[in-house]
Amino acid sequence: MNQPASAYFIEERHDPNETHTLAVLVQNEPGVLARVIGLFSGRGYNIESLTVSETEAQKHLSRITIVTTGTPMVIAQIKHQLDRMIPVYQVVDMTETRRSIERELAMVKVRGQGEHRVESLRLADAFRARVIDATTESFVFEITGNTDKINQFIDLMRPLGLVEVSRTGVAAIGRGPEGM
């Protein structure tokens, strides 16, 4: 009856899933991203968004920002598992600190004529999206904001002739004068 599906199955918990944004400071060396991604796939964790770029070239430091979901116990595991990797300097849970700003950039291509075209431009203006490419029958908008804002903008563009979207994924930074 109420048997767990496997002995490896962790206690059936009904803890709700949470979404957390983690900032991971790593040594920029070959394979470091593969290690991080391999950890997530190998242990069955979710990646909602992942961005990575070198942030301090002289020190060979890269910053990886990962948005992930899981129960509080899983989120704690993810942080510990990341932290024990050799090239990882620091893992900061931007969600837990509650003092962070998150931004994402998207480029949104919309194709249309007449009223649709005018409406897309009007909405872009309302969302403070910029036109970065235009033809007589299309626009490419650049929009920056948090994930919700971008999702909302894309939803609005859909009936107006949405062609494609390219998103950077989430970048996050703490508020105030201190670094991580």
């Binding site: 962790i10 059936e12 595991q77 932290d83 024990r84």
Partner: peptide, 22 residues
């Protein structure tokens, strides 16, 4: 079975690997 493991104890865990905790 983990949900029936030592149900009434306080547990102290010494480990060098933080990811082993909890």
């Amino acid at each position: 079975r983990v949900d029936a493991f030592s149900p009434n104890s306080k547990k102290i865990h010494i480990d060098i690997d933080p990811s082993s905790i909890n």
